[in-house]
């Protein structure tokens, strides 16, 4: 008989904890996610989206050396360079990054000798179609920032570069819009190279 009461007591002991949390609203840990967007702050190092580092003039430092492509474990990065007519070296044309197969292992960021790449903590990257997850990260095709800054003025610089948008080049979209998706929704924001 005393086993029965001891068992009953253990049940009440457990219930005591449950009731304690019920009547103490300060212990609630649930985050109301879509509503708390304004106050939600993720850690700086969170890896959610690959992006280019741009300097104050909007130029990057990528020399298209393909080291990130080599380090990528599952070929999520495809660097396409274009021959430079004046100098023998090549320069960056498209930087294709596949979010759909990326595992966010961060190796591309770490092996980059010029710190071109970074991982952004912007985690809301859902889209309407899987094909929209193949991005071109560079905003322009052309030489690196230090090379371009040697040019005398902005006009001479603009002659050397060509603008590129997020879905330019050998992405799944190739610059076109998908049927059923309003145009303008995935227009590139010019500074970050990440769709809005």
């Amino acid at each position: 008989m005393h086993v029965f009461f001891r068992g009953l007591l253990s049940l009440f002991k457990g219930m005591k904890i449950t009731w304690y949390y019920l009547v103490h609203p300060s212990t609630v840990v649930t985050q109301q996610y879509p509503e708390n967007r304004a106050t939600l702050k993720l850690a700086d190092r969170v890896r959610a989206q690959l992006a280019f580092n741009y300097d104050e003039n909007g130029f990057h430092k990528c020399t298209s050396c393909h080291i990130c492509e080599e380090a990528c474990p599952n070929a999520s990065i495809h660097v396409i360079d274009r021959p430079k007519p004046a100098i023998a070296k090549n320069e960056l044309d498209h930087f294709i990054w596949r979010l759909d197969s990326c595992t966010f292992c961060n190796l591309c960021v770490l092996v980059c000798p010029f710190q071109v790449l970074k991982m952004n903590p912007t985690f809301e990257s859902s889209v309407f179609d899987q094909r929209l997850l193949v991005y071109n990260l560079t905003t322009y095709a052309g030489a690196t920032g230090p090379v371009l800054m040697k040019q005398p003025d902005a006009e001479a610089r603009n002659k050397l570069i060509e603008p590129r948008s997020v879905y330019d080049g050998p992405t799944a979209l190739e610059g076109y819009h998908l049927a059923g998706i309003p145009p303008g929704l995935y227009e590139p924001t010019s500074t970050t190279g990440v769709p809005k």
Binding site: R6, G7, S10, K13, G14
Partner: peptide, 8 residues
């Protein structure tokens, strides 16, 4: 208290 001591 919640689980280890529980008779069930």
């Amino acid at each position: 208290e919640l689980f280890t001591g529980n008779v069930i």
